[in-house]
Structure formats: C-alpha cells, structure tokens
C-alpha cells in the first residue's frame, strides 16, 4: 500500500494548520499506521478511501480525528523518570521552604496527551509533600479527545504496565472492567483543559512547576519562541520549567536559564533566580 504523495501533503497541511506541527516527508509510514484505526472508526474501506472522501468533502469531525491521531504523543507513566525524581528530590523541598505560608503547589502538565504525565505528577506530589500540604495539577492538551480520555482517568492494562511500580498500581488505581481507573483521592487534585500552546493562553493562576516535555521538538523556531513566551507568563518568578531531554530554551528564549536539578536540567526565569541558589550549567 503506502500513502500517495498528494495524500501525505493534504494530511501534512491539515495538521500544520490545526496544530502548528510539521510532518516532514519520510513520515508517510507513520501517518498511514496512525490513520488505519481512524479510517476503521469512520467506516471507510481504507486510509486511501478515507482521505479521498475527506478531500472531496471536508468534515470537521473527521479532520479533528486526523489531527488527534497524528499529534498524540506516545507517553507513559513517569516517562523518562529523571524529571520526576528531580521534582521530588530537588524542587519540592525548595518550594516547601518558599511556600510555607500557602502550603499549596500548582503544577501544569502542558501537552498532557492521554493523561499519564499529570497523574504521575499527582503520585509524585502525593508521595513527597509533607502532611498538611495541598496541590493542584492542571493538564492541558490541544486534543479534545485526549482531554476527554484524561478526565475519565482510565488506562488500559498495557498502559498501567508501563512505568508504574506494582505498589503504585495497587495504591492509586482500581480495576474498572477492562481498565484501571485512578482513585478519587488522586483525581480530585487533577483537572484538565483544552489549550493551544501556540495561541495566546487564557489567564490562569501562575504555576510553581511546569512540565512541557517533547512538545517543542515538533515546532519551528519562531513557534518554539512563542510557546516559551506564553508559558513564562503563567510561571511563578521562582518556578521551574522541565523540558524534554532533546529540548532547550538556549538560543531560543534568553529569559530562561538552564539549571541542574538532580541528574537532569530544568529552566528558571533569569531575573528571579537568586545568585548561587541553583547550580548553573
């Protein structure tokens, strides 16, 4: 089979327009594999037939499904692990000192996909905050489908097998038919909203910690800069930003400074970092 060049161009243009994500040529195989289930869901005979009918007759619902299928990141609980370790070992102890009056932390999981990251953050804070502290976690994603999934807080067997310790699975999840559901005591700390990181963001109370991982890699430099500027406005002056391992603010946005956090790096707003407070890299 294989996707024709014109079908690929059509999909790439659609995804670019709706999400700013660039699908480079060479990803035809990936595009086709991701669209097979979409074609099946809408009752098309195959991917080619599905795309042909979508080009003949635009359909907002089908377009949204295409964008969702192609912009959903592969994710898992505690993905890459190091940022979560840095959060509990380095960031939380510092914030606990600085927020003694409020006893509350706010964390944003930007581009939270199917929800594993925000719930992993909830588990991390549940296990590392001193008694009497509270926390709010906001997950955001461009995909309404992903927001719906995340709010349901249900994960498949394969998903919970990945990244969670068995002890965490029995402590923070309960079986719900074929799925595992996050327990209410954790869910009540986590909320979701649809956000497009490249557009001006709504006013939200600022965050102490922001996880924005494996998002910037999809954007060109100008869009990366826009996203980082948008994010800075929602970050507390002494807040912490975590990016993906292959991402950086360096050479894109000088307002951030890279600092070591445990065995990984985080980014802080330049003006606010007191001299010597964190190891500069």
């Amino acid at each position: 089979m294989g996707l024709s060049a014109s079908d690929f161009a059509f999909v790439a243009a659609l995804v670019r327009r709706e999400s700013s994500i660039v699908l480079a040529p060479g990803k035809e195989y990936l595009v086709e594999a991701r669209l097979i289930p979409v074609a099946r869901q809408v009752g098309a005979a195959g991917v080619a037939e599905f795309l042909a009918s979508l080009q003949r007759m635009p359909n907002a619902d089908h377009q949204r499904r295409v964008v969702d299928a192609l912009t959903t990141n592969e994710t898992s609980f505690f993905r890459d692990r190091e940022p979560f370790t840095a959060l509990t070992d380095v960031v939380v102890p510092q914030l606990v000192k600085a927020r003694g009056a409020q006893r509350r932390l706010r964390v944003w999981s930007a581009a939270s996909s199917s929800g594993q990251e925000p719930y992993s953050l909830a588990i991390s804070l549940q296990e590392s905050l001193p008694p009497g502290w509270d926390y709010d976690i906001v997950g955001s994603d461009i995909s309404t489908e992903m927001i719906k999934r995340s709010e349901a807080a249900e994960f498949s067997q394969v998903e919970v097998n990945r990244g969670l310790a068995a002890q965490q699975l029995v402590q923070y999840f309960e079986r719900s038919g074929a799925h595992w559901r996050v327990v209410q005591s954790l869910r009540r700390h986590v909320s979701f909203q649809r956000l497009n990181l490249t557009a001006p963001l709504p006013p939200l109370p600022p965050f102490d910690v922001i996880f924005l991982r494996n998002v910037l890699i999809y954007f060109d430099v100008a869009t990366k800069r826009t996203v980082l500027r948008n994010v800075a406005r929602l970050m507390r002056p002494d807040g912490w930003l975590f990016l993906g391992a292959a991402e950086t603010t360096i050479g894109i946005d000088d307002n951030y400074e890279r600092v070591t956090a445990g065995r990984t790096s985080a980014y802080r707003l330049r003006a606010a970092v007191p001299a010597g407070a964190a190891g500069r890299m």
């Binding site: 898992s76 067997q157 394969v158 919970v160 097998n161 990945r162 990244g163 310790a165 068995a166 002890q167 699975l169 029995v170």
Partner: peptide, 22 residues
C-alpha cells in the same frame, strides 16, 4: 492477586499481555 504476590515477596509485577517496552 498483585497484593498477594507482593506480600509473598515479589519485587515487581508485570501483567500479561505486556509489551517489550513495559
């Protein structure tokens, strides 16, 4: 069952079906 296995001394628990990554 997971609780039973952990109590008996298992360190971790992988449910079938599992992927290589998991």
């Amino acid at each position: 069952q997971i609780v039973r296995a952990l109590a008996a001394g298992a360190h971790e628990y992988v449910i079938k079906p599992f992927t290589e990554d998991s």
